[in-house]
Simulated assay, not measured.
Amino acid sequence: MSFITSLSIVLFFLPIFIKYTNSKKIFQVIRLDGPDTHLKKHCVPTMGGIIIVLSIFLTIILWANLYNLYIWYVLFILVSYAFIGLIDDYYKFILQNSTGLSIKKKFFSQSFIAIILSFFICKYDQTPLVLQILIPFYKNILYPINNITYIIIIYLIIVGLSNAINLTDGLDGLAITPTIFISLGLTILCYIVGNLNFAQNFHLIYIQHVPEISIVCFTIIGSGLGFLWFNAYPAIIFMGDIGSLTIGSLVGLIIVLVKQEYLSLIMCSVFIIEALSVIIQVLIFKLKKKRCFLMAPIHHHFELKGYHESHIVIRFWILTIILIINVFLILQINQQ
Results as ranks from 00 to 15, higher is better:
I157S: 02
I215Y: 03
F198L: 15
I145N: 00
V193C: 02
I158D: 08
I192F: 01
I148R: 03
I207P: 11
A235V: 05
I148N: 05
D172S: 05
L167D: 01
L228N: 03
G170Q: 11
N163I: 04
A235T: 11
H203S: 14
L167F: 09
V159E: 00
G224L: 12
L184S: 08
L186T: 05
Y206L: 12
L171W: 02
I180P: 09
N197H: 14
N163K: 06
I145Y: 07
I153Y: 10
I145R: 01
N231C: 07
P234D: 09
G170D: 10
I165K: 08
I141F: 03
L167I: 14
N201Q: 14
G224R: 06
N147V: 09
I151W: 01
P144S: 03
I236K: 10
I145L: 08
S214F: 06
V210Y: 02
I182R: 02
I176D: 05
A175G: 06
D169N: 13
Y155Q: 14
I154Y: 10
F227Y: 01
N166P: 01
Y233I: 14
D169Q: 14
I221Y: 04
I145G: 02
G194S: 01
L174F: 01
I221L: 06
L228S: 11
I158A: 04
Y191G: 13
F181V: 15
G170H: 09
H209S: 15
Q208Y: 15
T177D: 07
T179A: 14
I141C: 07
I213T: 09
I215T: 12
L189F: 04
I215G: 03
N231L: 04
F218C: 14
I237V: 04
I236R: 01
T179G: 00
N166W: 00
I148L: 13
T187V: 06
H209P: 06
I145V: 09
C190Y: 12
P144A: 03
A199I: 07
I221W: 09
F238D: 13
N163F: 04
K139M: 12
L161A: 02
D172T: 12
S162D: 07
I157R: 03
V216G: 00
L171T: 02
I148K: 11
P234L: 15
Y206M: 13
T168Y: 12
P234F: 04
I182M: 00
N195D: 14
I165L: 15
V159T: 01
I236L: 05
I180M: 04
L225K: 11
K139Q: 10
F218L: 15
N166L: 13
N197M: 14
Y150V: 10
A232L: 15
G185I: 09
N195I: 13
I220F: 08
V193I: 12
V216K: 08
F238V: 13
Y206Q: 08
L189S: 00
L204Y: 04
C217S: 01
L184D: 11
Y191K: 15
I188M: 09
I165D: 07
I221H: 07
F230H: 10
L161T: 00
I148T: 10
P144W: 06
G224T: 08
H203R: 13
L204H: 00
H209V: 13
T168D: 11
Y233P: 09
N166A: 11
T179N: 09
Q208G: 11
S214H: 08
P211M: 15
I220R: 04
L228Q: 10
P234G: 08
Y206V: 11
I165H: 12
C217T: 06
